[in-house]
Design a protein around this nucleic acid. Structure first.
Length: 114
DNA sequence: ACATTGACTCGCG
DNA sequence: GCGCGAGCCAATG
Protein backbone atom coordinates (compact mmCIF):
# COMPACT_ATOMS: atom_id res chain seq x y z
CA UNK A 1 0.00 0.00 0.00
CA UNK A 2 1.41 3.28 -1.12
CA UNK A 3 1.73 6.49 0.80
CA UNK A 4 -1.53 8.40 1.23
CA UNK A 5 -2.28 10.41 -1.87
CA UNK A 6 -2.54 13.69 -0.02
CA UNK A 7 0.95 13.19 1.33
CA UNK A 8 2.33 11.79 -1.90
CA UNK A 9 1.22 14.72 -4.03
CA UNK A 10 2.60 17.27 -1.58
CA UNK A 11 5.94 15.52 -1.40
CA UNK A 12 6.23 15.04 -5.16
CA UNK A 13 5.52 18.70 -5.64
CA UNK A 14 8.24 19.65 -3.18
CA UNK A 15 10.78 17.36 -4.84
CA UNK A 16 9.89 18.76 -8.25
CA UNK A 17 10.78 22.23 -7.01
CA UNK A 18 14.40 21.35 -6.33
CA UNK A 19 16.43 23.19 -8.97
CA UNK A 20 18.67 21.21 -11.29
CA UNK A 21 22.17 20.92 -9.93
CA UNK A 22 20.98 21.30 -6.36
CA UNK A 23 20.25 18.79 -3.64
CA UNK A 24 17.97 18.78 -0.62
CA UNK A 25 17.75 16.68 2.54
CA UNK A 26 14.68 14.56 3.29
CA UNK A 27 13.75 16.69 6.23
CA UNK A 28 13.70 19.87 4.18
CA UNK A 29 11.64 18.25 1.44
CA UNK A 30 9.15 17.26 4.10
CA UNK A 31 9.03 20.81 5.42
CA UNK A 32 8.53 22.29 1.97
CA UNK A 33 5.74 19.78 1.48
CA UNK A 34 4.16 21.08 4.64
CA UNK A 35 4.94 17.90 6.56
CA UNK A 36 7.57 18.74 9.18
CA UNK A 37 9.03 15.68 10.85
CA UNK A 38 8.01 13.30 8.08
CA UNK A 39 11.46 12.81 6.57
CA UNK A 40 10.96 9.04 6.61
CA UNK A 41 7.73 9.40 4.73
CA UNK A 42 9.61 11.19 1.97
CA UNK A 43 12.00 8.28 1.67
CA UNK A 44 9.16 5.84 1.66
CA UNK A 45 7.42 7.60 -1.19
CA UNK A 46 10.58 7.99 -3.22
CA UNK A 47 11.13 4.28 -2.97
CA UNK A 48 7.76 3.70 -4.54
CA UNK A 49 8.35 5.81 -7.61
CA UNK A 50 12.05 5.28 -8.24
CA UNK A 51 12.85 4.21 -11.76
CA UNK A 52 9.47 4.89 -13.29
CA UNK A 53 8.98 8.54 -12.57
CA UNK A 54 10.36 11.76 -13.95
CA UNK A 55 10.71 13.14 -10.45
CA UNK A 56 14.25 14.29 -9.57
CA UNK A 57 14.46 11.86 -6.65
CA UNK A 58 18.23 11.78 -7.04
CA UNK A 59 18.43 15.33 -5.67
CA UNK A 60 17.19 14.13 -2.31
CA UNK A 61 19.68 12.89 0.27
CA UNK A 62 20.40 12.75 3.97
CA UNK A 63 20.76 15.75 6.26
CA UNK A 64 24.54 15.32 6.44
CA UNK A 65 24.89 15.29 2.66
CA UNK A 66 25.45 11.55 2.32
CA UNK A 67 23.41 9.42 -0.04
CA UNK A 68 20.76 7.28 1.57
CA UNK A 69 21.91 4.18 -0.30
CA UNK A 70 24.84 2.01 0.74
CA UNK A 71 27.94 2.76 -1.35
CA UNK A 72 28.20 0.37 -4.29
CA UNK A 73 24.52 -0.50 -4.37
CA UNK A 74 22.53 -0.09 -7.55
CA UNK A 75 20.53 2.86 -6.31
CA UNK A 76 23.71 4.51 -5.11
CA UNK A 77 25.39 4.39 -8.48
CA UNK A 78 22.28 5.52 -10.27
CA UNK A 79 22.00 8.52 -8.01
CA UNK A 80 25.67 9.37 -8.35
CA UNK A 81 25.40 9.19 -12.13
CA UNK A 82 22.34 11.39 -12.31
CA UNK A 83 23.87 13.95 -9.99
CA UNK A 84 27.05 13.95 -12.02
CA UNK A 85 25.03 14.86 -15.11
CA UNK A 86 23.93 17.99 -13.31
CA UNK A 87 27.40 18.91 -12.20
CA UNK A 88 27.08 17.59 -8.67
CA UNK A 89 29.99 15.44 -7.63
CA UNK A 90 28.74 12.65 -5.36
CA UNK A 91 31.33 10.05 -6.30
CA UNK A 92 32.52 9.83 -2.71
CA UNK A 93 29.00 9.17 -1.51
CA UNK A 94 28.68 12.64 -0.10
CA UNK A 95 27.62 16.02 -1.41
CA UNK A 96 28.75 19.37 -0.10
CA UNK A 97 25.49 20.86 1.12
CA UNK A 98 27.07 24.28 1.48
CA UNK A 99 27.77 24.35 -2.24
CA UNK A 100 24.92 22.28 -3.67
CA UNK A 101 22.30 22.43 -0.96
CA UNK A 102 18.99 23.99 -1.93
CA UNK A 103 18.89 26.88 0.44
CA UNK A 104 21.55 28.89 -1.24
CA UNK A 105 20.92 31.79 1.08
CA UNK A 106 24.46 31.53 2.32
CA UNK A 107 26.01 30.45 -0.93
CA UNK A 108 24.52 32.34 -3.84
CA UNK A 109 23.26 35.34 -1.93
CA UNK A 110 26.57 36.05 -0.30
CA UNK A 111 29.12 34.72 -2.69
CA UNK A 112 27.22 34.31 -5.92
CA UNK A 113 27.01 31.21 -8.13
CA UNK A 114 30.63 31.78 -9.21
C1' DA B 1 -4.78 -2.06 19.17
C1' DC B 2 0.33 -3.84 19.49
C1' DA B 3 4.83 -4.67 17.44
C1' DT B 4 8.05 -4.09 13.71
C1' DT B 5 10.30 -1.56 10.04
C1' DG B 6 12.48 2.04 7.46
C1' DA B 7 15.90 6.22 0.90
C1' DC B 8 15.38 9.99 8.54
C1' DT B 9 17.56 13.22 12.28
C1' DC B 10 19.94 14.66 16.38
C1' DG B 11 22.85 14.27 20.36
C1' DC B 12 26.57 11.91 23.03
C1' DG B 13 30.82 9.60 23.80
C1' DG C 1 34.66 10.26 11.78
C1' DC C 2 32.09 6.21 13.75
C1' DG C 3 28.81 3.67 16.48
C1' DC C 4 24.78 3.77 19.60
C1' DG C 5 20.52 5.07 21.32
C1' DA C 6 16.30 7.72 21.29
C1' DG C 7 12.70 10.31 18.86
C1' DC C 8 10.03 10.45 15.13
C1' DC C 9 5.68 9.01 11.91
C1' DA C 10 3.19 6.29 8.46
C1' DA C 11 2.73 1.77 6.55
C1' DT C 12 2.31 -3.36 7.49
C1' DG C 13 1.12 -7.66 9.50
Amino acid sequence: MPVRKSYATAIMKAVAEIPKGRVCPYGRVAEVAGLPGRARLVGRLLGELTGRDELPWHRVLRADGSLAFPAGSRGFERQVAKLAEEGVNAATGRVDLVRFGWQTSLDEQLWGPD
